[in-house]
Design a protein around this nucleic acid. Structure first.
Lengths: 207, 207
DNA sequence: GTCTATAATTCGATAGAC
DNA sequence: GTCTATCGAATTATAGAC
């Protein structure tokens, strides 16, 4: 009898605990950062003892790495979906606006996985960052291509380096996670649109 | 005989060691971040033993706090100086541009103190962040006022929240520290001007 | 699978010699 | 003022009972 023949709720029992741990880790990592997130607290949130985590994962870094990878996937999927909705025929300008709004919404309203990814990246061990290098480079390249295609169709300025502006745009968007609060002064849609409008259309009244 | 009567190089002996420790701490904190920066490494860079640090400072956090405070001071001074150079009569638009270029230049080319401040802020203990709250709020308010005065004189858009844009601008500028390298592909003056031109004048070709 | 107990490190901080 | 030696606490990871 192969594993796939098992009853669904039988085969998923172990998998569900794994998911519970990852959810707890994402929560703690998003709030504390990499170093300050202890296995004791993660286990506590997951309603377990710290030692029990090692039945499901090899190490703290293995947990962190999976949380960050999932967070990155969530964000990329949100962008993909928004770009699909706006369509291929939209201008680079409009596609960039849509991607910015989608990404900011994703990292603030979605799960803690995206927040954990943003919060812990710099602080995480070099080995962890290297293991995430490929999807992260694809993520960054996506923004570069988005800007470049806007430069090609004439809807975005061509006198700036797409790679440089992409990096700064990503960082500026990520920063929203650091200060925006769900019950705060601003609605996130307002922030996202204000941000997109600022980066894309600028602060100046006229040129 | 009061302390001020001592010969200059006599009175400064202890002070010089203190400075050497702070320089070493800024270096290590900028490279490793708060948690990963150990007193052993800081002492090693300062050519001392870890225990000796406690003759000059009460705790690791006392060192970190002073490094971050100095870094913030450096940055604010660079901005003040640039705004003075551009003059009071310049438009809000031009003053914002000047401040952006000055700040980005300061945090990339200046000492490690500004880098340490940026790198360690989120990761540092709550007590440390609270002790830096006043100068940090003044720093942030300076950017808000800069943008608001541009809105008042009509050189910057008035349909955005100055406080929100200020936060995002600060974060975007700080992000440059994370990826720009002295021997890399771009000159920092180029990056700084490209950044200022993007945030202030936008990415769009026309409005 | 989860628990308890504990090993093994690491690090901040202290004490005392010099 | 600096060094050596060491304490005490925290944390990752392991071992074995259940």
């Amino acid at each position: 009898m192969s594993p796939t023949d098992l009853a669904p709720d039988r085969i998923r029992k172990g998998e569900r605990t794994r998911t519970r741990i990852l959810d707890a880790a994402a929560d703690v990592l998003a709030r504390r950062g990499y170093a300050a997130a202890t296995l004791t607290e993660i286990a506590s949130v997951a309603k377990m003892q710290a030692g029990s985590l090692y039945y499901h994962f090899d190490s703290k870094d293995a947990i962190v790495e999976e949380v960050m990878a999932v967070g990155l996937d969530h964000a990329r999927e949100a962008i993909r979906s928004a770009l699909k909705a706006v369509g291929d025929k939209a201008s680079g300008h409009d596609r960039l606006m849509a991607a910015v709004v989608a990404y900011i919404t994703a990292i603030t309203l979605d799960s803690d996985f995206t927040k954990a990814n943003i919060r812990c990246y710099e602080e995480s061990p070099e080995a962890t960052r290297e293991n995430l290098a490929v999807p992260l480079r694809e993520f960054a390249n996506g923004w570069v291509r988005l800007i470049e295609s806007g430069q090609l169709d004439g809807s975005l300025r061509s006198d700036i380096e797409a790679r440089v502006v992409a990096r700064m745009t990503i960082a500026a968007m990520n920063s929203v996670v650091g200060w925006w609060r769900f019950d705060g002064e601003f609605h996130i849609e307002h922030v996202a649109h204000m941000f997109a409008s600022t980066v894309v259309d600028g602060l100046a009244t006229d040129s």
